[in-house]
Nucleic acid binder design. Structure first.
Lengths: 208, 208
DNA sequence: AGGAAAAGTGCACGCACTGCAAACATGCGT
DNA sequence: ACGCATGTTTGCAGTGCGTGCACTTTTCCT
């Protein structure tokens, strides 16, 4: 096959493809082993062995064991920013966020293997929950800046940008929580939408 | 004296007081040193030496270096639950949360030394941010259960409890963020209240 | 005072993570 | 096809976190 690999900037030589494969292998080994044995009964050496690389190589791909277990795309914040600025300028911020969330939820639900496992181990190990939340947090920061730019306010001092960015994370985490609690029978995008409905409507104000 | 010391487990003999003092000393040493030098230029041994205990003793008080730097009360979730159930049953959940948040914000703002330092180091070290968020997360879990009980819904499957618990955390984190961004000139309780106003009102729905 | 219980301490160990330098693989120009 | 430039893997050695264990010291209670 000599036709060019174009697609999503994914273009590949052998080198790039191998890197992707190794990264995925390490992540999947880490996730599976930890799901089976628990976090402290799996060493980095175990993971490296399972993925067939040297222990030292492990750290070329992930800065820590925890990160390998979570294994999220480190460029997610970037792609989030792109997805947002691709939305029509006529939308309100919430509309744009809903749209992006819907697409993201659909993508996540499609990984029928990884996300349930991730949620399982995250639930079993608070330290991993912290890492996962930290990953989301970096996206939230990007988001707050985008929101500030979009609404023309100063990012740091107004309520809206930083609060909405945080709330958006709450919507997603709450949806993931309920997805797992219901044994993945519900549709993740639907759960996310449900959260947004609640957020848009506001929470029960004092009865008047 | 033979009458029992009951109360809130608080009062005590020399033993308990010393423990409190040692814990506080370790936390303050950790926080100050990390603020000065950065997280990876401070070892557990440094902290222990600064607080005048043996390195081994350090781990009798905190399970990790990070936890010592953050140094939050491990029983916070419990006191949160108590504070909530002390609220009159006539209040809506949001009203009760606002009240509890207001008290908490006032208490935090009163620690004029610690919180600014905490926010500084948390801002400089993502790993610490993760720990801090993890601390909040446990309170959120307690909260979700309380909300579920209060509204008589099943905790795990309905939107309200888990989402509101998460959003409450968002309000607090957003307030802390803006508090720091404004160099602590604003009133923290006011910032928190501002967040709640926004949350109660709901976010800008599609223009009609 | 004296013994029980709790806290502090030293020692030894396993494992996470890092810098460095050497082997190895891949891409590219000729 | 060849060989050099560049990127990737690996081994080695070192630092520092965190833990189990056994022992000493301090506080508590009668």
């Amino acid at each position: 096959m000599h036709f060019s690999w174009h697609a999503l900037g994914v273009t590949t030589g052998l080198r790039e493809r191998k890197k992707q494969a190794t990264r995925a292998a390490l992540h999947e080994s880490a996730l599976r082993l930890v799901a089976e044995r628990g976090l402290d009964r799996v060493s980095v050496d175990d993971i490296a062995a399972d993925a067939d690389v040297s222990p030292r190589t492990f750290f070329n791909y992930f800065p820590s064991k925890d990160d390998a277990v979570i294994g999220l795309d480190p460029e997610h914040p970037l792609r989030l920013a792109e997805a947002l600025s691709a939305r029509p300028a006529t939308e309100t911020p919430v509309q744009a966020l809903r749209a992006v969330h819907a697409a993201e939820a659909a993508r996540m639900a499609a990984e029928t293997e990884l996300w349930p496992l991730r949620l399982q181990v995250v639930d079993a190990h608070p330290a991993l929950a912290a890492r996962l939340t930290a990953s989301f947090a970096r996206s939230e920061q990007v988001l707050a800046e985008w929101l500030a730019a979009r609404t023309g306010t100063r990012a740091e001092l107004d309520v809206q940008p930083t609060l909405l960015a945080a709330v958006q994370g709450s919507v997603m985490r709450s949806a993931l929580h309920r997805w797992r609690a219901g044994d993945y029978t519900a549709s993740l995008p639907a759960l996310v939408a449900e959260g947004w409905d609640q957020v848009e409507a506001g929470f029960p104000a004092p009865r008047h």
